[in-house]
């Protein structure tokens, strides 16, 4: 049982997960530095899989490395770069080292990256991958070939409540839950009313009795960063008045503060929704704002007297 799954099962407090920065070089010291920054404030951390279709140190290597430095990984697996054989091998391989949390994603298209000429794979889609990964934990590969000592896996996925077709997103989340997703980290979003409708729909459909919902917020420090996400990141749209509010805050410091306040508001709103089990943090600031945010929200291991440091098991 991963620590994340235990925390979600006992649901005594909201969990805090975060995105691990991309690693390209610098050896394990680079990884350790990033792990040290996050460790006191988060329960588990996502090891990304070539985010935005840019090559980086692989999901498996970073997930395994994170464990060496006391962080519990959530290994993302995207369908863009590998076929079904390779993806199963990655999950099974990482599980040898104790990686249990797996998040199954479709993946941004190759055209979102710096090598748009690459071949896209998509041999499985994310929902199929959820079912295949769940099968590994049940003791068989997709082919049916038995795994004598199956790995303990905690399989989840991502859903985007903010992108069209909005009315269909709850059904898609349900499909993922039925395929075996036990947690859904939600895409970055700046429409609180859409999040609210989605979460309500999931609760009414009974999804939250099997599957934890974890919305995502982003720490930014400029209106430019918001505009960039709005224009360039697939599936993210930000209302113009929100960008204007941050842009019109005043000087650079005032803008950074207004950006923070916006993130804090969105976080508070997300955590106030019945059916939400925690929050996922993406930090583009790297100026201590992540710590400030969990302090202001009063959540995470730093505010849980019963908690041990993330990633250390309690037996």
């Amino acid at each position: 049982m991963s620590r994340l799954s235990e925390l979600l099962a006992c649901s005594e407090r909201p969990v805090v997960t975060a995105e691990f920065p991309s690693i390209d070089g610098g050896g394990l010291e680079e990884l350790e530095k990033a792990a040290d920054e996050l460790r006191p404030f988060v329960d588990a951390v996502n090891a990304t899989d070539n985010p935005s279709a840019h090559a980086h140190a692989s999901n498996t290597s970073v997930a395994i490395g994170m464990m060496q430095f006391g962080l519990e990984p959530i290994m993302q697996v995207v369908c863009r770069d590998k076929n079904r054989i390779a993806m199963q091998a990655d999950v099974i391989g990482a599980s040898l080292f104790g990686v249990e949390n797996v998040a199954c994603l479709t993946g941004d298209d190759v055209t979102a990256g710096d090598e748009p000429e690459a071949r896209r794979v998509f041999d499985l889609d994310s929902t199929q991958l959820i079912k295949v990964a769940s099968g590994l934990a049940e003791g068989h590969y997709l082919s049916g070939r038995a795994i004598k000592q199956p790995p303990a896996l905690f399989v989840g996925a991502v859903e985007n409540p903010f992108a069209p077709p909005l009315d269909y997103r709850v059904l898609r989340a349900l499909k993922k839950a039925e395929a075996g997703a036990r947690f859904l980290q939600l895409q970055i979003g700046y429409y609180p009313e859409r999040l609210e409708a989605f979460v309500r729909g999931c609760v009414e459909a009974g999804l939250t009795s099997t599957t934890a919902l974890i919305p995502t917020v982003v720490l930014t420090k400029s209106a430019k960063a918001l505009s960039f996400m709005d224009k360039s990141v697939p599936g993210i749209s930000i209302p113009a008045d929100m960008i204007a509010r941050v842009a019109g805050a005043g000087d650079k410091d005032a803008i950074a503060e207004e950006s923070y306040q916006l993130t804090l508001e969105l976080s508070r709103h997300a955590l106030s929704l019945p059916g939400v089990s925690g929050i996922h943090l993406t930090d583009f600031r790297h100026d201590g704002s992540l710590e400030r945010l969990v302090r202001d929200l009063g959540i995470g291991p730093a505010f849980d007297p019963m908690a041990t440091v993330a990633g250390t098991t309690t037996g």
């Binding site: 298209d109 199929q128 985007n160 697939p234």
Partner: peptide, 14 residues
């Protein structure tokens, strides 16, 4: 383009 058979990806534009 991603040959998805189980619904839309998260990248659908506004």
């Amino acid at each position: 383009p991603k040959t998805l058979r189980n619904g839309p990806c998260g990248g659908v534009r506004e």
